[in-house]
Design a protein around this nucleic acid. Sequence first.
DNA 1: CAATACCAAGCAAGCGCTTGGTTTGTAAAC
DNA 2: GTTTACAAACCAAGCGCTTGCTTGGTATTG
Lengths: 207, 207
Amino acid sequence: MNPNQILQSLIAENLVSDPNGARGRLLKEAARLFREKGYERTTVRDLAAAVGIQSGSLFHHFRTKEEILKAVMVETIRLNTALMQAAMEAAETPKDKLRALVRAELESINGQTGEAMAVLVFEWRSLSEDSQAEVLELRDIYEALWLDVLGTLRDQKRLLADPFVVRRMLTGALSWTVTWYRPERGGLTLDGLTDQVMAMLGFPPAS
Amino acid sequence: MNPNQILQSLIAENLVSDPNGARGRLLKEAARLFREKGYERTTVRDLAAAVGIQSGSLFHHFRTKEEILKAVMVETIRLNTALMQAAMEAAETPKDKLRALVRAELESINGQTGEAMAVLVFEWRSLSEDSQAEVLELRDIYEALWLDVLGTLRDQKRLLADPFVVRRMLTGALSWTVTWYRPERGGLTLDGLTDQVMAMLGFPPAS
DNA sequence: CAATACCAAGCAAGCGCTTGGTTTGTAAAC
DNA sequence: GTTTACAAACCAAGCGCTTGCTTGGTATTG
C-alpha cells in the first residue's frame, strides 16, 4: 500500500479530513500558520483569512480555537501512525525496520505533513490538559512500534543503550531537524540524512 | 574554577545579573513562568505578581516584555558557554571532552538553569528577528566548541557520521530531555543519562 | 424547505504599555 | 546629626487595542 492509498483509506474511514473539503483545507492552513507563527500568535482572524471566510464563520466548524489545534494533532498522528506501520511492515531485518522508522519519521517531519508534525512537537503545551491526555493515548500506539524494534536490536547487542532512552533521544533529534534541515538548499537528501542518523547509532550504510 | 566561581566572575563583569538583585530575581521568575506557561501566555501582570510589584513597574527595568525574554536568553547563553568551556578544558582526551560537553549540556538543561535553557529552546520564535540574530551570534561561540571535538573524533574514525549533523541531532536529543527526564523520580542520574548518550553514539562506558 | 455554510457587526475581557504622582534609599551640605 | 537634594523604584489608574467568541440574519445547496 503506497502513502496515497493509506491517506485515502483513512479519509474513507473518517479518521482524517479530506484536504479538498472545507474542514481539511482549514486544518491544513491552520497547521501552516501554527508552525509559522505559533498557536498563540495566530488569531482566529488569521485562520479565517487563510481560507477566505470571516472569523466568526470558523465557529460553525469548530467550537473553539483550541479544538482546531487538537484536530490538527489528532489527524496528524493518525496518518503518521498508519504510514509508520506500513513502512515497517515492508522491512525485514530489525536494522532495516529501524531504518524504515527513522526514514518515515523524518519524512513525516520534513515532508508533506511536516507542518502539522512541527505543530505537534512545538505547540504541545498550548493544548489543555484534557486534550493532552487524549492525544497522548494515540501516540502510545506509535511509540510501541519503536520500542519493539529497538528492544530486539538491544537483545542482539547491536545497540548499547537502553531502548527507552534511545527512543526519546531520537524523538528529540528527529523532531529538531525541522528547525535546520533544508533539503532544497543543501546537498543532503532525506535518504542521506537517514544514513547519517543510522551511522550515528553505529549502523554504517551497507556498502 | 567551579561553577559557582564562574557565576560570580560573570556577575562581576556585569555579563549576568546577580540573582539576589531586583533584576536577577525578575529574570529568574520570568524564566520559570515562560517555561511553565510559555512566553505568550505569560502576561506582564503574571511577571509583576511573581516578584511582588505592580505590572507597570516592570517597565522601569525593561522597555518591553520581549526585552525580558531576550535578557533571559542572553544571560543563559553567557553562563552556559562559560560552564561548557570550563568543563571541556578539564577533560583530556577527545572522548572525555565529548562526554564533558554532553554532561554539561544535560546539566544546563536539567539543572539549576534548566528553566532558562528550556525557554531558549522553546520560545525561540517569540523573539523578534533582530533579537534572534543577536542571540544567534552568541550561540555560535558555543557551537564551535562542539564541532571542534566532534571533528577530531571523526578524523580518528571513532565517529561515523558528519560532525555538523551529529551536533544538530544532539542539540535536539539533549534539549528534548527537558520534556521527559525526571531525575527525582526514576533511578537514572545525570551521569547515568550521560553514559546512555555516549553508549548510543558507540562509546561504551569505561569498565 | 430544511439544513448547511456563511456574513456583518460587535461584545466582554484581557493584553502590553503609559502616565502622573508617591515612596524609598543614599549621600552630600550645613 | 539633622537637613536638603535627587534619582531610582514603585503604585494606582487606565488608555487604546486585540483577542476569542456570540448573535441575528442571509445566501446556497440538495
